[in-house]
């Protein structure tokens, strides 16, 4: 009985007893969820347009952030006087590098492997992951770096709200992250729905063959989506890096994004967002209220179990396209 009480009643008593803590936990979950959603978004973009399950998205995040910081250091070393100028120059150069990466991936990896089974392409992105880890460390060194959040005019510090009989502290950078992610998702949705290339992209997602037959260049589309995923990765890298630091341990956040992905469905942008929020909030609540029962660290697999539960009822994720099989 005692254990049942601890599982089903006690956590809710705690929530009711200290609503400010609950709000704080929810907020942290929301922020974490937004960032998970951002990584998942990078996966979805590529999966939709090319059917490639891009395992390298996590390392692309690290690589983008490293490039940004590394180039910034170089520029400052080369004598660019003011911090913000160097920071924005570095941002532009990092964007360029992600563009080159997209181009190179299309040329070197995707084009020779066109029409291969999914698992082979999946493996190829593994190869890409290893390559980028080695390359990134080779060029920029393996030691952790500080993200240049201040120089990019991102706010720091925290604001406190008086709420529900207590205080809720919100990091300004988190608020900025939520805003930026919202703007970005809105921008991407606009891009997909309204622009010519966006429409071509959706056509490719529907059917490669049909898209080719109406004269859409697959190669071009792939470069565009990989570049878009690169931009998403850079944003994620900045946001995540500002919360801790830029190092290769960041790549494990890609593994965090996978349950988000299966929860929302591989092919749905809104799914990535909703999935991210469910996982982020579920994870933080679970860790905070139920974690002590099982010993800490359940964060590492709780998300997967949440996602698995959803999957048992919706095998294609919440918003994924229904899988229709024909013989």
């Amino acid at each position: 009985m005692d254990i049942l009480y601890k599982i089903f009643i006690d956590p809710f008593m705690q929530m009711g007893g200290a609503p400010d803590l609950l709000v704080q936990t929810l907020w942290e979950g929301l922020v974490a969820g937004m960032l998970y959603a951002l990584i998942a978004l990078g996966f979805v973009l590529i999966f939709k347009a090319s059917g490639v399950f891009n395992f390298a998205q996590g390392i692309m995040v690290v690589f983008a952030a490293l490039t940004l910081v590394g180039v910034y250091d170089l520029l400052r070393g080369a004598g660019v006087p003011s911090g913000w100028l160097a920071a924005y120059l570095a941002l532009a150069i990092a964007l360029g590098v992600m563009g080159i990466l997209a181009f190179a991936v299309e040329r070197v990896v995707l084009r020779p492997l066109v029409n291969q089974p999914d698992i082979i392409l999946f493996m190829a992105t593994f190869g890409l992951t290893y390559f980028l880890i080695g390359f990134g460390e080779f060029v920029f060194g393996g030691n952790p770096k500080r993200m240049i959040a201040g120089e990019l005019n991102l706010p720091s510090g925290a604001v406190e709200f008086k709420m529900a009989g207590g205080f809720v502290a919100m990091q300004k950078i988190d608020i900025a992250a939520v805003l930026i992610v919202s703007v970005m998702v809105a921008g991407l949705s606009f891009f997909f729905q309204r622009t010519r290339i966006g429409r071509a992209l959706r056509a490719v997602a529907d059917s490669h063959k049909a898209a080719l037959s109406v004269g859409i260049s697959l190669e071009q589309i792939w470069v565009v989506v990989w570049f878009a995923a690169g931009i998403v990765a850079l944003t994620t890298g900045i946001m995540w890096g500002a919360r801790s630091e830029v190092s290769f341990s960041l790549q494990i956040i890609a593994l965090k994004a996978l349950p988000v992905l299966i929860l929302g469905g591989f092919t749905s942008i809104p799914g990535a967002i909703v999935g991210g929020l469910i996982i982020g909030i579920g994870e933080k609540l679970g860790e905070f209220y139920w974690g002590p029962l099982l010993g800490s660290g359940i964060e590492s697999w709780l998300a997967y179990f949440i996602a698995l539960l959803f999957l048992l009822f919706r095998p294609q994720g919440l918003f994924g396209e229904k899988i229709i099989e024909r013989i």
Binding site: L113, G127, L128, Y130, F131, I133, G134, F138
Partner: peptide
Amino acid sequence: EHLTFMAVGGLIILFLI
């Protein structure tokens, strides 16, 4: 170590191709 990583990644892609 870094070069090994790069080479392993590159070789995986190469073998797949």
